[in-house]
């Protein structure tokens, strides 16, 4: 037993090292003037400690406003993706129909077609119907972007749910819609929350659409907002500030996402068991 425990803690230690090694330097550099990072050979402790990068961020960009935009866009898009994706997955794996493989496969083909060539047609569409600078201009494309993964993962998960559960549901007189809402969704919460995390973070980090479809400075998302940090000169790159801003939004984000996940799962599974 000692041996097994030792192996696990060794593994966990290596995993922590893996995740935090690069982060350590980012944190370090974020507390130094930008020039200090150019120390050769590198040192693994701060040579000149300062908070100026962190305070500088708020002078450069309205970070809170950008974070609010990101939260609105990413939350709405995650919700819609989960809803539409799980519905489609239910159609594919429970209702079943001819051509379901074709449906799933075209979903990925379209989903992974190079984004660079998609920008212009979508931009033109939004520009024609005056949807630029509107949260929907990001929410809708992001939702579509999340659909392939969500649908696939949920379809795989639904297929593994034992058939007798579904049969029992129909004996209980639940309709198709009722089975989806009352049986499948509660049962698949772990999978749903997993894709929710993956989708949410992916939407949060998206850059090109957010840059192109939101030309107004007030509508920037965090990722684009951070790229607006600059120095006095075109070439100058105040990257201590950039890193500080990235850490300031990412680390709370990760903790928030994780706590929310735990809360949702425990809350809903409890409800489902009782009901």
């Amino acid at each position: 037993m000692m041996n097994r425990n030792f192996k696990i803690y060794l593994g966990v230690g290596l995993m922590a090292l893996y995740c935090l090694f690069p982060i350590y330097f980012l944190v370090l550099y974020s507390f130094e003037p930008s020039e200090a990072a150019y120390h050769s050979p590198p040192v693994f402790y701060p040579i000149a400690f300062t908070f100026s990068n962190y305070t500088g961020v708020f002078k450069s960009i309205p970070l809170a406003r950008y974070a609010l935009n990101s939260i609105i866009v990413a939350t709405s898009a995650t919700f819609l993706t989960l809803l539409f994706g799980s519905m489609a997955a239910y159609g594919v794996s429970v209702l079943k129909f001819r051509g379901r493989d074709l449906f799933l496969n075209s979903l990925i083909l379209l989903g992974f077609f190079p984004a660079a060539t998609m920008i212009f047609p979508i931009y033109k569409m939004f520009s024609d119907i005056n949807l630029l600078n509107n949260y929907l201009a990001l929410i809708l494309p992001y939702t579509v972007g999340g659909l392939p993964l969500t649908t696939w993962v949920m379809a795989t998960y639904f297929e593994n749910i034992p058939k007798d559960l579904l049969d029992a549901a129909s004996v209980d007189g639940l309709s198709i819609g009722g089975t989806y809402a009352k049986i499948m969704i509660p049962l698949s919460l772990p999978a749903l929350s997993t894709v929710a995390i993956l989708d949410f973070i992916a939407f949060w980090n998206e850059f090109i659409y957010a840059l192109t479809f939101m030309p107004d400075s007030n509508m920037r998302t965090v990722t684009v907002g951070i790229s607006l940090i600059s120095g006095r000169f075109t070439y100058q790159y105040p990257w201590g500030q950039i890193i500080a801003a990235a850490l300031m939004v990412t680390i709370p984000l990760v903790i928030m996402v994780f706590v929310a996940q735990e809360k949702i799962i425990s809350g809903l599974t409890a409800g489902a068991v009782k009901g």
Partner: peptide, 17 residues
């Protein structure tokens, strides 16, 4: 929670790092 951080840092910024 920690293991999610690499996935959550925007690539465009991490690439600078």
């Amino acid at each position: 929670t920690i293991f999610l951080i690499p996935w959550a840092l925007p690539t465009a910024i991490m690439a600078v790092g």
